[in-house]
């Protein structure tokens, strides 16, 4: 079964590996040369983790090796993830930090826009009817428009 649908968050690196590799035990992570085929389709600088223990596991599992023991050829290249049959490697191709910052900035910009926006208040459009209802419910506990005589007509149920 190809398991590339949901890589766990822990598999994704928040920092470039060049920054964090000195912090990790020697040999636990090796940096690989970027794939030029993939490079042409990714957004910015890309790094790739390669976990040797994962390949050992693959070899033990007897996954597709194309005749060379311990060297697995990718069966499918989809987006920026390298997918192997039977195992999803710890592969990360693009630095998550700038993209995360971009995402936060984008959502902040949207929220800022929404926060600064104003409702449509031209008279006598729909919004005013709702404002009048809000005022009447606040003051009297009853829903009416211009006066207690002015209850909602039947059509308003659909309106």
């Amino acid at each position: 079964m190809v398991s590339y649908l949901h890589l766990n968050r822990k598999d994704r690196c928040p920092l470039p590996p060049s920054l964090i590799s000195p912090l990790l035990p020697q040999g636990s992570i090796q940096l690989k040369q970027p794939n030029p085929l993939r490079e042409s389709h990714t957004l910015g600088p890309s790094w790739k983790f390669h976990n040797p223990s994962a390949e050992d596991t693959l070899a033990n599992l007897g996954a597709a090796t194309n005749g060379k023991e311990g060297v697995q050829q990718p069966l499918l290249k989809y987006h920026h993830r390298t997918v192997y049959e039977g195992f999803s490697t710890h592969t990360m191709t693009s630095c998550a930090l700038p993209s995360r910052i971009c995402r936060y900035l984008g959502f902040s910009a949207i929220l800022l826009f929404i926060g600064l926006s104003h409702p449509f208040m031209k008279i006598p459009f729909d919004i005013w009817e709702h404002l009048m209802r809000i005022a009447s419910i606040y003051d009297t506990g009853e829903s009416f428009i211009f006066s207690p005589e002015d209850k909602a007509p039947n059509m308003n149920l659909w309106h």
């Binding site: 008279i123 006598p124 005013w128 404002l131 009048m132 211009f146 006066s147 002015d150």
Partner: peptide
């Protein structure tokens, strides 16, 4: 609508 919402008076009107 302004008299009703802002000044809270009953008004004989339609929207």
């Amino acid at each position: 609508p302004i008299v009703r919402t802002a000044l809270r008076r009953y008004v004989y009107a339609d929207r």
